[in-house]
């Protein structure tokens, strides 16, 4: 589904990702862990198409298509979803209006008729349950005045609405208390299907108690230095990132 080959990415001349490689298949959950500054969020942003970064070389293939050739909104409509680390507030734009626009643009892309107001509201009611969102959240402006936990729940709610093929969750666990973490993790698990894939980016092992990954990768200084199964996450938790740093040396 996702194949990244020898990807080199820089910002303002500073190289961040160095010959980065990964392959994610349908039905898989991958966790990418790493210390601060290792390039985790850059990876997420580049896959989503944020163009403040420069892709110097390498390729990203998504279901065989050249992702780097597609503008960010097209990537999204094709099924790439980014759960933001810091979801932005959009004052005055209701969640209902925002999501309805997003869903209908996606439907248009696949030649489907837009949802009627009633159909849309029904879908919204259904998907709110995935992350235990109270009715009010959806009538408020996008992320405006949301608590940290509400913002993250809102990201997973949007993921539930849009049903992406490939979801990249960028530090979705940061700033969450344990209850909110469970809600978010349960949401992600509930959305798992044989034909979609999830890449969970995290600093801590904690989230992986609830979202069990098929593969764990350790990112350090812009490249994957170690890959393994969920046991690697536990080992990392126990030994700390110093262990990796020393191994790399």
């Amino acid at each position: 589904m996702l194949k990244i080959k020898d990807l080199n990415v820089s910002i303002n001349g500073k190289q961040i990702l160095k010959n980065f490689n990964i392959e994610v298949n349908k039905g898989e959950v991958h966790a990418i862990m790493g210390p601060n500054g290792s390039g985790k969020s850059t990876l997420a942003a580049v896959i989503a198409g944020r163009d403040i970064f420069t892709v110097d070389s390498g390729e990203i293939l998504y279901n065989g298509k050249d992702l780097l050739d597609m503008p960010p909104d097209l990537r999204a409509r094709e099924g790439v979803f980014l759960g933001f680390q810091y979801p932005v507030e959009i004052p005055g734009v209701s969640m209902v209006n925002f999501m309805r626009t997003a869903i209908n643009e996606k439907r248009k892309h696949f030649g489907l008729e837009p949802l009627t107001g009633a159909e849309f509201l029904k879908l919204m009611e259904e998907k709110k349950k995935v992350v235990d969102i109270q009715a009010k959240l959806t009538n408020r402006s996008v992320n405006e005045g949301f608590s940290g936990g509400e913002k993250k729940k809102n990201e997973i709610f949007q993921m539930a609405m849009l049903e992406p093929k490939l979801a990249i969750l960028d530090e979705t666990d940061s700033g969450l208390d344990i209850d909110a973490l469970k809600v978010v993790a349960n949401g992600v698990n509930a959305l798992k299907k044989p034909d979609n894939a999830t890449v969970v980016i995290t600093h801590y092992q904690r989230l992986l108690d609830y979202i069990v990954p098929d593969f764990v990768h350790v990112l350090y200084e812009g490249r994957i230095v170690k890959s393994g199964t969920k046991e690697l996450a536990l080992e990392l938790e126990e030994k700390g990132y110093e262990w990796i740093k020393n191994e790399v040396k």
């Binding site: 989503a48 198409g49 944020r50 503008p71 960010p72 909104d73 999204a76 409509r77 979803f81 980014l82 933001f84 979801p87 932005v88 959009i90 004052p91 005055g92 734009v93 209006n97 925002f98 999501m99 626009t101 997003a102 643009e105 996606k106 892309h109 402006s141 996008v142 949007q158 849009l162």
Partner: peptide, 22 residues
């Protein structure tokens, strides 16, 4: 970018944000 990432094209994104502002 947040709007784009949800599949909303640039024109609609500006429309949404400006209408929210107003």
């Amino acid at each position: 970018f947040y709007c784009l990432q949800r599949g909303i094209d640039m024109g609609s994104a500006i429309g949404l944000i400006v209408n929210g502002y107003a």
